[in-house]
């Protein structure tokens, strides 16, 4: 009985981590931090989370960048016919790759897309509605949040370029006066 409980312990920790990641409540943050950290460490051993930078179907390999800034590292993980969700690993998209070690090499077991979370006070808009709004008369400020270079090459009609770095410094000056103006932000897909 006790053994069985222990078996479930990692699962519980993972569940705790997941719920922590999705619901960002201000007050309980500190209390939740400690166990979440532990779970994160346990999880780090068998999960790569980050942007896929390479995929070869011939070599059955995926390279994925994990970690941020100076700590960013490119990891190589193999996949085989038993790996589920291989299509979710696409170059340029964020993925969560669960893996196991075999012959000293990581092999992907389950690949899932890393989904972006909507910030508080915002809603999602889908492509069809987006097209309707742009074609219609609604006053809209459409913000391209990608790096300026990407905006220059191609952007959606009427979009203005406000990369994240710029937004963090002086977004208030760039936004319209009327606080109820429709503001839509976009980037290069779910990251």
């Amino acid at each position: 009985m006790r053994k069985q409980m222990l078996k479930f312990l990692p699962l519980c920790l993972m569940a705790a981590l997941l719920s922590y990641g999705c619901v960002q409540t201000g007050g309980t943050e500190d209390a939740a931090k400690a166990p979440a950290k532990k779970a994160e460490q346990a999880q780090k051993e068998n999960v790569y989370k980050g942007k896929v930078t390479g995929k070869s179907n011939k070599a059955k390999s995926i390279s994925i960048v994990v970690g941020k800034g100076d700590k960013a590292k490119t990891m190589m993980v193999k996949f085989d016919d038993k790996t589920t969700g291989v299509d979710h690993a696409a170059v340029g998209h964020a993925s969560i790759i669960a893996y196991e070690m075999r012959d000293g090499q990581p092999w992907a077991t389950v690949i899932k897309p890393k989904l972006a979370k909507l910030p508080k006070g915002t809603t999602e808009i889908k492509t069809a509605e987006m097209a309707e709004v742009i074609a219609g008369d609604t006053k809209i400020m459409l913000i391209d949040a990608r790096p300026a270079g990407r905006y220059k090459g191609a952007h959606m009609p009427g979009a203005v370029s406000i990369p994240v770095g710029v937004a963090k410094k002086n977004l208030p000056e760039l936004l319209p006066k009327e606080k109820d103006t429709l503001i839509v932000t976009y980037c290069g897909g779910p990251t």
């Binding site: 972006a116 909507l118 910030p119 915002t122 999602e124 808009i125 990608r146 976009y186 980037c187 290069g188």
Partner: peptide
């Protein structure tokens, strides 16, 4: 990226902020 900017706008009191999560690739694909 898009979510970060949207979050900042919402925090500044903008009431009608939406995120086109599927982004430019979906726009083009359509």
């Amino acid at each position: 990226m898009s979510t970060t900017v949207a979050g900042l706008a919402a925090k500044k009191g903008y009431t009608n902020v939406r995120v086109f999560l599927d982004g430019q690739p979906a726009w083009i694909k359509d």
